[in-house]
């Protein structure tokens, strides 16, 4: 499988990455190489292998339902680019 320029542009858009024009062929080549490796792994017979959701052989620990966090808005908002009336301000998104 070989990725085209438009595939690379679509992936970059989904990840919200800005690419330089001249870098696109290089990404197409290296991403294709990754997919080739996946294709190679896909060829392995895994019928008897349980799908792995996590590399650790452990299960999720559960936390008691208790409120343990206190309000630290001032500290968090100190590093935000813009805040107003307690809200984080971001470029407008219209629905």
């Amino acid at each position: 499988m070989s990725l085209t320029r438009s595939d690379v542009e679509k992936i970059a858009h989904l990840a919200r990455l800005a690419l330089r024009e001249e870098d696109i062929p290089g990404y197409a080549r290296t991403l294709t190489a990754i997919l080739d490796m996946v294709a190679q792994m896909n060829a392995v017979d895994t019928r008897d292998v349980t799908p792995m959701a996590h590399p650790l052989d452990a299960v999720q620990r559960l936390r008691p339902d208790e409120v343990t966090e206190t309000d630290q808005r001032e500290r968090f908002q100190a590093i935000a680019p813009q805040v107003e009336a307690g809200l984080y301000l971001v470029p407008r998104v219209i629905e």
Partner: peptide, 12 residues
Amino acid sequence: SLHEDFHGLSGI
């Protein structure tokens, strides 16, 4: 998201 006018920005 609050889309009332925050000088053309959205409040979160």
